[in-house]
Design a binder for these strands. Structure first.
Length: 424
RNA sequence: GUGGACGUAGCUCAGCUGGUAGAGCGCAGGAUUGUGGUUCCUGUGGUCGUGGGUUCGAUCCCCAUCGUCCACCCCA
């Protein structure tokens, strides 16, 4: 047997049995964003490799070892986007959208060459929100509020909001020195990973999951204690806003970011129900990025949400929507009935927008067609056989509820269906 | 990139200390030749992930490889 083609490792087909949950979540997201006055933007999946190096940071794991980068036929260095913010900022600068505040959202596949595991895939989908030109904590608060609303609308339980402030770059630099000094004083107790990061990315040491380091890290100097007045006020205002809106949160002084462009507010929505990949949604402020990519200095804040993880949570909590089964399954037996069926079905669709009508194809007797009707999940079977054609009627049989099969004259069918099946 | 577990029918799995494979579900048909869902019957199904090795003989043992899952790491 010749080897059958397989999907690329870490890249999954989303099958018909799964698309209803996806569609449900995507519809909620779209409605949510419309409700808050955000506009959709769509960017290419490919960008110049340099864009990601300049934004995400040269020494991050993403850029160093996880990007799908290649040269195209012109020899240009291209990369399948590993996240959405960089491309969104690029698009905004390129099209001059930043002369006024912008509230944007997008959605689509992202690519990172990581070892696949639960909640982590090489092609995955992110929903992202970015707000530009708004420097204050009010917009930070809005982003958190709208994410909290999403969990409520989906019915999700068990998500915890973690919050921190990374301060301004100067404040972070001072803190960084103190942290390094502290960690070096305890270097003998650190694990190999942490010692390596001590110089490359010391803030990330705080992220370590190694329980042996808990005491050392617990005693480390705290970033929050190194904030300047303005940074502190920004953070306090955000917290006050969350309090006022009744959103509970946990201040997590060790919450940092893997991407270089973040400052001030950072937050994560975390769950313990998805195994090791517990972050469902994460974001923060990145006031420096627009200028860093060649635009005018523009404050910015955003977050990204992992759709696979959200889908997994929705399923884990049994919140999947019921599938949209047909209202009607048209059973047509015999040559004459089969020939009439498409015309009758189209005429019903013309007169009854919103009708979900599946027409049987492929012939067969009543028995097999009814079997298909049942499998389709349809509420009723609409039946056309020789008898019905002769009498100018259609049979209508309930498949999900008690009740006898009845005959309805073809000309009365639209009105009848409108009232009894569509309920209007 | 590192570690562990696991690859048998479309799906979920069984298969004893090595003797070339089974079940349930699904799918198709039938039990009333104009009626599904329950029940019963019949049928459809697999080079046991792939390639080597050991053996008279390998789904089973050994090696390699690919893949899946979980964790580390990383992150959404």
């Amino acid at each position: 047997m010749s080897p059958r083609p397989r999907a690329i490792r870490g890249m999954h087909d989303i099958l018909p049995s799964e698309t209803p949950v996806w569609g449900h979540i995507e519809a909620r997201l779209r409605a949510l964003m419309e409700g808050y006055g955000y506009a959709e933007i769509r960017m290419p999946i490919l960008e110049q490799t340099d864009l990601f190096k300049r934004s995400i940071g040269e020494v991050t794991d993403i850029v160093e070892k996880e990007m799908y980068s290649f040269q195209d036929r012109n020899g240009d260095g291209l990369t399948l986007r590993p996240e959405g913010t960089a491309g969104c900022v690029r698009a905004c600068i390129e099209h001059g959208l930043l002369d006024r505040p912008q509230r944007l959202w997008y959605q689509g596949p992202m690519f990172r060459h990581e070892r696949p595991q639960k909640g982590r895939y090489r092609q995955f989908h992110q929903f992202g929100v970015e707000a530009f030109g708004l420097p204050g904590p009010d917009i930070d608060l809005e982003l958190i509020l709208l994410s909290a609303r999403l969990w409520r609308e989906l019915g999700l339980q068990g998500l915890e909001l973690q919050l921190n402030s990374l301060g301004r770059a100067e404040e972070r630099a001072v803190y960084r020195e103190r942290l390094v000094a502290y960690l070096q004083a305890h270097a003998t107790d650190l694990d190999a990973d942490s010692r390596r990061r001590l110089h490359s990315n010391p803030l990330r040491v705080l992220d370590s999951k190694n329980p042996a380091l808990a005491d050392i890290l617990g005693g480390a100097p705290r970033l929050l204690d190194h904030l300047g007045g303005e940074s502190r006020a920004h953070f306090d205002a955000l917290c006050a806003g969350l309090d006022a809106c009744g959103v509970s949160y946990r201040i997590e002084p060790r919450l940092v970011r893997g991407l270089d462009y973040y400052g001030l507010t950072v937050f994560e929505w975390v769950t313990d129900r998805l195994g090791a990949q517990g972050t469902v949604c994460a974001g923060g402020r990145y006031d420096g990025l627009v200028a860093q990519l060649g635009g005018r200095p523009t404050p910015a804040v955003g977050f990204a949400l992992g759709l696979e993880r959200l889908v997994a949570l929705v399923r884990e909590q049994g919140l999947e929507p019921p599938p949209a089964a047909p209202h009607l399954y048209l059973v047509a037996v015999g040559g004459a009935a089969q020939a009439q069926a498409p015309r009758i079905a189209e005429s019903l669709r013309d007169r009854l927008p919103g009708l979900r009508l599946q027409v049987h194809c492929g012939g067969g007797g009543f028995k097999s067609q009814f079997k298909k009707a049942d499998r389709s999940g349809a509420a009723h079977a609409l039946i056309l056989g020789e008898d019905e054609l002769e009498r100018g009627v259609a049979g209508l049989k309930p498949l999900r509820a008690e009740g006898e099969q009845i005959q309805v004259p073809l000309e009365d069918l639209p009105a009848w269906l409108r009232e009894r099946i569509l309920g209007r």
